[in-house]
């Protein structure tokens, strides 16, 4: 029981971070803040992956000097490279999201969801 609580403390923190993100998406009214909450989720997942690659006492997976260490001596580089891609995806998502928000703001003059919906309804 104790290990579940303490041994996985990093994962608990990640879970909390992710739930904060989901809470943000659902609870905030502002469309821009929703986008920020989305970024929080993706950061949580990125950290989750990075955690998978870590080992106590390991080094960066780069060959220093002549001697090749054992596998245990190096952090797993694969999750890091995967997350490189995920970060790029996140940036692209944020970019598209901001572009859409820019258009919404130009059209409706607000980013509060209820106000936007009200405007939309009065349009039609």
């Amino acid at each position: 029981m104790l290990t579940t609580a303490t041994g996985y403390v990093n994962y608990w923190l990640i879970s909390i971070l992710m739930l904060v993100g989901f809470y943000g998406i659902i609870a905030t009214e502002n469309l821009l803040k929703k986008l920020m909450a989305l970024n929080v989720i993706s950061v949580a997942i990125i950290i989750f992956y990075l955690n998978l690659g870590q080992k106590a006492g390991s080094n960066v997976p780069v060959l220093f000097g002549e001697e090749l260490g054992t596998v245990a001596a190096y952090a797993n580089p694969l999750p890091h490279t995967l997350m490189l891609t995920a970060i790029v995806v996140g940036v692209a998502t944020t970019g598209v999201g901001l572009a859409l928000l820019y258009r919404i703001y130009n059209r409706y003059g607000t980013l509060e969801e209820t106000d936007v919906l009200k405007e939309m309804r009065s349009d039609s």
């Binding site: 999201g97 859409l100 928000l101 258009r103 919404i104 059209r107 409706y108 919906l117 939309m120 349009d123």
Partner: peptide, 9 residues
């Protein structure tokens, strides 16, 4: 159009 932008977002 603008309605679609909101839906897309």
């Amino acid at each position: 159009g603008s309605r679609a932008t909101v839906a897309g977002y």
